[in-house]
């Protein structure tokens, strides 16, 4: 069959509409299952080593930590950026405490007054194994943080293997983090 102008005029719109339709349908069904999120924030540092940093601690919560200390860990660590002024971070705390029973969480207070951050995490019991203060948000920029709360799963040796830009809870831990721990 030869390609005619009329054939093209008929075929191109139908194929175009078909492709768009199937694509939209896939997006919608993936949106409902959570696999497709048009507002998702992709972090370019996933799969790469952690950036270098050295941060002071918070009052009454020990010293801060450095990238070398994080790299020297023998277990995977969940790094969580938070702030006392951030409402989702307040909501996230019980979930973090539940997760902290399974794995260590290291907290980084983002653009927060040290005394406020310290009071905030001690109010109902700290989920963090270690805490550091990123007073001016410089470290967060290197990590590619777009807002708080954001969390990173760091493998032994200091490679980032997962990034989440929502408040964590045990469901996300079971669905996203635990399967990744098994592979380490």
């Amino acid at each position: 069959m030869s390609v005619t102008r009329r054939g093209l005029l008929t075929a191109v719109p139908i194929i175009g509409a078909g492709v768009l339709g199937v694509g939209f349908w896939r997006m919608l069904s993936d949106m409902r299952s959570g696999a497709f999120d048009p507002r998702a924030i992709k972090n370019p540092n996933v799969g790469k080593p952690i950036p270098s940093f050295a941060m002071p601690g918070l009052p009454g919560l020990g010293d801060g930590f450095t990238d070398a200390e994080l790299k020297a860990q023998h277990r995977p660590v969940l790094v969580n950026f938070f702030a006392s002024w951030c409402i989702p971070c307040v909501a996230e705390m019980p979930g973090l405490r539940a997760i902290s029973r399974n794995m260590p969480i290291w907290g980084i207070a983002y653009e927060d007054k040290p005394e406020n951050a310290s009071a905030f995490i001690q109010r109902d019991g700290s989920p963090y194994a270690r805490v550091a203060s990123d007073r001016h948000g410089r470290v967060a920029i290197d990590w590619g943080v777009t807002g708080v709360p954001e969390s990173f799963l760091v493998a032994p040796g200091g490679r980032i293997i997962w990034h989440g830009s929502a408040a964590l809870d045990p469901q996300i831990y079971e669905a996203e983090i635990r399967p990744r721990l098994a592979g380490l």
Binding site: G21, F24, W25, M27, L28, M31, R32, P38, R39
Partner: peptide
């Protein structure tokens, strides 16, 4: 209205509505 496109014009997005319109 389906929320597929990331836009500054946000309607209350609901994929169920998206399926119906699709």
């Amino acid at each position: 209205r389906s929320g597929i496109l990331n836009s500054v014009h946000a309607f209350a997005n609901d994929p169920a509505r998206g399926v119906f319109i699709l």
